[in-house]
Amino acid sequence: MSTHATIVADTHAIVPNGSGAAAILAAGIGSLVVAVSGIAADKSPSLKSLFSIHKPTGALSGETTLAILVWLVAWAILEVLWRKRNVPLLRINVIALVLLGLSLLSTFPPIGDLF
């Protein structure tokens, strides 16, 4: 009795992780800007006034617009730099998740008020 086995080689090339890393780190940066701009506007009346680009919404309009712009610009720059490369993803994941965690904590007013 003979056993026949067919081995199918997986020839599909793995996509470099740089593009994913760029999106992950940019999301961490954008999240942190949401928190930092909120704290900054709270501390500075002139920044609060500057961020009030849509009067009915107040400073929140400028804070979030700034965060979205920083997020998208950071994403675009990192994408251009990393899209064809493999980057140390573990380190980038840790940095991005720390930024996200800091954002979550510092949007909590009693913690944000400590700054």
Partner: peptide
Amino acid sequence: EWKEHVAWLVPIA
């Protein structure tokens, strides 16, 4: 004050 900022983390993520 928490809700108005923390909600913006969601669409980014």
